[in-house]
Design a binder for these strands. Structure first.
Lengths: 341, 341
DNA sequence: GGTGCGTGATGAAACGTTTCAGGCGAAGAT
DNA sequence: ATCTTCGCCTGAAACGTTTCATCACGCACC
C-alpha cells in the first residue's frame, strides 16, 4: 500500500541510495536524475517512513512538551512560545497533558522515551528529586524544566520568580491600605503555590502586617475559586478580608464570580489580585489585577535551551533562567479613592 | 548508550526472540526465564525503541489531534475527551496546533503522515474538498473530522448542529422581546460561524423579525469581540441592537467587557448570548448565556470512531454523528422583568 | 598512454524490533 | 517402545531508511 524508496528507485530506474540522496542531499545528484526521481515520487505518492529514518539515523525532529493542564491558558501560551522556536528550526512540537496526575505524566514520559524524541519540555507534577527525568537525561534526551525552580545540575530550567510575584502582589495590596488579606490557592504541594504564598507572607511581615488568612484549594480551577469564596463570605465582616490574593487567575475568576453572586462588590468590598494575567483576566467584567508572567517567552526560552543542548550536547552548559514577574494593575484592586471620578 | 534487545538477551542468556516475547506476550514464556529477562531489562535500563517496533510492526499507538486554536478552551475540552478514550485503549494522544493557518496545518499533516500515526482527528482550517486528507485516508490512516459538517464519504465526522444552535439562541432572544438583534463573529469563511448566523437569521425571519445586524470579526477572540462592541456602541440608540448573539464565547466575553467599559449594562441595556459555554462563560461577572456544546463528548465520540475504524477497517462504515446543542440561560440574557426581585 | 581526479551513481551493511517456521525435550497416548 | 502432542525456546528474515566504501566514467595533465 505505502510505496517505499525501493519502488521509487525502480520506477525512476536508479538505485535505492540515489533516491535517498535526492531526499536528503539533492545538491549532490545530477539535475536530470533528480528530476526523474522526483517525478517517480510524485507519481507513486511516496511519503518517507519516519520510523525507518529515525531508526537508522537515531535522530528525531520532534520536541515534546508535557504540561500540567492543557485547559489552563497559561500553559497554552507557553506552548505557543515553544512552537514558534521549534518550528522555526524545522521541528515539530507535540503537546502531552499530564493533567496534574503523576501516573499520566509517567506514562507520557515512557512513551516519549520509547519514541526517542529530540527533547522534552516538562512542568513536572511533583517537585524535588526526579529520578524518572534523570534517567531520561542520562539516556541522552535533553530535558528542560518549565516553570520549576532551578533544579538539579543535569538539566536546564526556565521559571519565573514566584516568591517575587507573591511579594509584589502583597505589597500592592498593603500599599492600597489593606490589612486583612487572604491567600487562596492550592494544593500546597505545588511549588508555584507555596512560593507565591511565601512571597506574600514575607512582604506582609516586613510591613508589620499580620499574616494572610490562607484558604487552601484542592486545585487551581475556577470552580475551586468559587468554593473558596463561598467559605470566605461566611466570615463575620470584622474578620472578613478586605483583599484576596489568588494563586492563579482561574481561581481569582472563580472568587470574583462567587463574591459578586453574594452581593459583595469588587474592589469596593473586597479587592482582588490574580496571577498569570491570562487573557480572560483583562476581559473579566471587573478587569482583574494580576501578576503577569512572560508566558510565551517562557516557552521560547525553554525551547531555545533545549535545541541548544540538543545540537551541541558537549559544549552545552546547563542554565537556569529566571524571569521577573510584574503586576498588571486593573480595576479589581483599585482603591475607592482612586476610582472616584 | 541505549541498550538494545540484543544486549538484554545476551545478559539474560537467552535468545533475542525470547526477550521480544517477554515484552509482548509474557504469558508464553516460562516464569523463570521471564524473571531472568526482566532482571536484565532492569539492570540495563532497557527501553524499547519505538521506531524499530513501529517499522517492523507497521502499527503505531499514537493518535494525533490537530486543533484550530490550542488557546481556545473549546478545543482543550475536546482534547480531554479524546484523551480519555485513547488512553483507555492504551494509546497516546498528541496535540498539534494549526492556529488557523493552512500552511501549518499542512506541515503537521505531513509529519503525521511520515510518522504513520494510528489516526488523525482534525478540525481543518478550510472547508470543502480536502485532497490532502483524502490522500492520508487512501494511505490507510483513518481520519475523523471534528466539528465539521458531515463531509465526504471517506471519513467519519462528529459535529454539533450549528444551524440549530444559532436558531435556539435567536429564538431565545426573540422570546425575551428583543427585536433589534446583532450577530457578531467571523471570519465568515468558517463554517461554524456562517451556520450559526444562518440559524439565527432563519429563526428571526420565521418570527417576522428583521434580519440581524451582522458585525464580522477577523477572528474569534476576546480582542476581536472588544473591537466589534466598540463599533456597536457608536450607533445611535434608536438603531443600536438590544441584544447581541456572538459566534463564540471568546467574542462574547470581549463584547461584554467593552460594553461595560462604555457604561452599557448587560443585560439591561443589551442582552448577550455566546456560544460554546466554556468555563469562563459561567464565571464571567455577568454570567453569560451560551449555547452549550458537548465538548468532551465530541472528543470522545471522535476518538471512538477513529479507534473503531483503526482496529477493523474492513467492517467499518463511516458515520457522521451530529450532536444537538442546548442553551444555557444565565444572567446576561435575562430580561429585566424576570430579574426583578 | 598511463596517472590522477572529480562527479555521480551503486550496493551492501546497519539500525532494533517483531514474527514465524522450526527444533528440542518431556509428557501423554497407543 | 514408538508416535503425538505440547511447552518453551531459537534463529533468521523482514521492515524502510541512511550512510559509506566503492566503482565507472570522462577529462585534464605530464
Amino acid at each position: 500500500m505505502a510505496a517505499s524508496i525501493k519502488e521509487v528507485a525502480q520506477r525512476a530506474g536508479v538505485s535505492l541510495g540515489t533516491v535517498s540522496n535526492v531526499l536528503n542531499r539533492p545538491d549532490i545528484v545530477s539535475p536530470q536524475t533528480r528530476k526523474r526521481v522526483q517525478e517517480a515520487i510524485e507519481e507513486l505518492g511516496f511519503v518517507r517512513n519516519d520510523s525507518a529514518r529515525q531508526l537508522r539515523a537515531g535522530r528525531s525532529r520532534t520536541v515534546a512538551i508535557v504540561v500540567l493542564d492543557v485547559s489552563n491558558p497559561f500553559f497554552t501560551d507557553v506552548v505557543r512560545g515553544a512552537e514558534s522556536i521549534v518550528e522555526g528550526a524545522g521541528g515539530m512540537v507535540v503537546v502531552c497533558n499530564s493533567g496534574g496526575d503523576a501516573a499520566r505524566e509517567h506514562r507520557h514520559l515512557d512513551v516519549l522515551e520509547e519514541q526517542r524524541v529530540q527533547g522534552i519540555l516538562v512542568t513536572p507534577v511533583s517537585d524535588g528529586k526526579q529520578p524518572r527525568l534523570d534517567r531520561i537525561v542520562t539516556r541522552g534526551i535533553p530535558v528542560v524544566l518549565v516553570d520549576r525552580g532551578a533544579g538539579l545540575a543535569n538539566q536546564c530550567s526556565v521559571a519565573v520568580d514566584d516568591v517575587l510575584g507573591g511579594r509584589i502582589a502583597a505589597e500592592h495590596l498593603a500599599e492600597r491600605g489593606h490589612r486583612r488579606i487572604a491567600f487562596v490557592g492550592g494544593p500546597m504541594a505545588l511549588r508555584q503555590v507555596t512560593d507565591r504564598r511565601l512571597g506574600a507572607e514575607a512582604a506582609l511581615s516586613e510591613q508589620g502586617l499580620p499574616p494572610p488568612l490562607v484558604v487552601e484549594t484542592p486545585m487551581l480551577s475556577v470552580s475551586a475559586g468559587r468554593q473558596a469564596a463561598d467559605e470566605i463570605v461566611t466570615l463575620p465582616s470584622t474578620r472578613r478580608p478586605t483583599a484576596i490574593f489568588c494563586a492563579n487567575d482561574l481561581v481569582a475568576l472563580g472568587v470574583l464570580q462567587a463574591l459578586t453572586a453574594h452581593g459583595l462588590a469588587v474592589p469596593d468590598d473586597i479587592a482582588l489580585v490574580g496571577y498569570d494575567d491570562i487573557e480572560f483576566a483583562a476581559g473579566a467584567a471587573v478587569p482583574l489585577s494580576s501578576v503577569r508572567q512572560p508566558r510565551e517567552q517562557l516557552g521560547r526560552t525553554a525551547a531555545q535551551l533545549l535545541l541548544e543542548e540538543s545540537t551541541d550536547p558537549d559544549r552545552h552548559e546547563h542554565r537556569h533562567v529566571v524571569f521577573q514577574p510584574e503586576l498588571a494593575v486593573r480595576q479589581s484592586s483599585e482603591t475607592k479613592r482612586r476610582r472616584a471620578r
